[in-house]
Amino acid sequence: MLIANDITVQLGHRTILSNVNFNAQPGTVTAIVGPNGSGKTTLLRALSGDVDYSGQVLLNGCDTRQLKSWELAAERAVLPQASTLAFPFTVIEVVRIGLQSGTSGETDSVAMQALNLVGLPHYANRFFQELSGGEQQRVQLARVLAQVWDPVLDGTPRWLLLDEPVASLDIGHQLQIMDIARNFAHAGGGVITVMHDLNLTALYADSVAVLAHGSVLAHDSPMQVMTDAILSKAYECSVKVNTPPPSGFTYLLPHSAGLATVSQDSL
């Protein structure tokens, strides 16, 4: 269980998050959605301990501010939105950097298995900096996966905190990465992911938190949260959510303002 109580984050005089309460269950994929500047990434950074905040974050029952960085690292891994790398490390070396020891046979196989999972085992000995942006993103995901390879360790769930993990990927790899996240969750781990794409969110999330102007507008199952009213209010535009009967999958299509008005009138 990951619980955030009364989180307020201020940068200078600007309040980015105000009194946010948030929680996520292991075994589920929890998505954080909302318009640009609503505080999604800041919330994730508070959860991972990267920004100063008032309030409290409890990770598996422990206040994260009381945990040492290596204790935190054993329970949660974080995939940032953008990543950099100094020095010419190879792909497999990047994946190994996150491991407690990079040389033993076992950790080697974890690193290789993680690369396999993201579909890049043949890039193991290539230089990271020579890869395309999307490939680098997948290598970073492999690094994050290797860090918390077992979704549950000694009965304690481990957590993946992902900030727009599929932002720079094509549709095939978007699905591949979201499948990996879902498998991690369904094996007992916890996944919290900031999402930009509402359709992917509807497809993969077990629980959705909608942020707007630094507050949580709604947090519930996708069916409850992803409605015309809530999304239109959050994104400040008219949004039409469709749920076709046979599959039951929710999907959204972009509407121009004119089209949206017409379709609402005709209902």
Partner: peptide, 19 residues
């Protein structure tokens, strides 16, 4: 190990357990 982690940036170094 800490300097290796730092190659990924200070934030990521913190994420992987570097003080």
């Amino acid at each position: 190990r800490g300097l290796n982690g730092l190659a990924l940036g200070e934030v990521t170094a913190h994420h992987i357990g570097i003080p």
